[in-house]
Simulated assay, not measured.
Amino acid sequence: MTIIIKALLLVVVAEMGDKTQLLAMAMAGKYKVKQVLMGVLVATIFNHALAVAAGSYLNSIIPMNIVKIVAAVLFLIFGLWTLRGDKIDEVDEKKNKFGPVVTVAIAFFLAEMGDKTQLMTITISAQSNQPIFILMGTTIGMLIADGIGIIGGAWMCKHIPEIYIKWIAGIIFIFFGSVTIYNAVSFWSPVYIILYILILMVLIYLFGVKFSHHSQVCNIALPNKNDPKDKLI
């Protein structure tokens, strides 16, 4: 049960503001919410099953100490990635020969390939020997995060500045990454710690401020007031 909760929480944090959450929110503007969530569920099961298999394989061939260091670095990358934010291109408006669920599933599966949440699933799987529970946790986490994005996206954009959501999620990853790398590496000294903090601060500034994507989530979640077809119900 612990690994399910861990996987669920980490994926929920990783998915907040991620391009697959943005895609789900955009799809909800074209299809019914239950159809979008069903497509997300199907795509996530297949996509994260591949990720869990990859993570379990890496766990069997790479020493655990190396896995911990790699996982710590990936946590830091996920944190910086979250601070920078994601953006998606406009959703293709051409009619599709597939039904809504299949259309969403295909789009979501392709968008999730190599995405932050898929890499997160691989990382968690490489640290644990419970693939079924990890798949359950990450799948439920994706549904929760995308459900929040679809149903609560407009409310969050009205009441919670997007930058707060990004920074809270990003700092959580950076914190876990820093703790993990501190425990995995034995040659820390005050000089190395200061150097690490300085480098991390520069990276946080670059990804969180200098090269950050702004307002993408709210552009999708909130309707266009100038468009009479685009109104909240």
Rank of each mutant, 00 (worst) to 15 (best):
P100F: 05
Y192G: 13
A184E: 03
I132R: 11
I45H: 10
S56A: 11
M142I: 13
I106N: 02
E162F: 03
V67E: 02
S212R: 12
V102C: 08
F173S: 03
T82W: 00
V185K: 00
L10F: 12
Y205I: 05
Y182M: 09
Q130C: 10
E112N: 14
N224Q: 07
F108H: 03
I233G: 15
K30D: 09
L206R: 04
M120V: 13
E93I: 15
V102P: 04
K68F: 11
N224H: 04
I77C: 07
I140Q: 07
A51R: 02
I151H: 07
Y196D: 03
A26Q: 09
C157P: 01
P190W: 00
M16G: 07
V179N: 03
Y31P: 02
G29F: 10
Q118I: 12
F109P: 01
I194H: 05
M27N: 14
I193A: 12
I134V: 06
T103Y: 11
I132L: 15
Y196W: 06
V179E: 04
M142G: 12
K116P: 02
M38R: 14
I124T: 06
V11I: 08
T20K: 02
L135C: 05
T2M: 14
G141D: 03
T139K: 08
L22K: 03
Y196G: 01
I194W: 10
M38Q: 14
P161S: 05
A49P: 11
D89L: 15
M156H: 07
F78V: 01
T138D: 05
I77G: 07
F176T: 03
W155M: 09
L198E: 02
V179G: 03
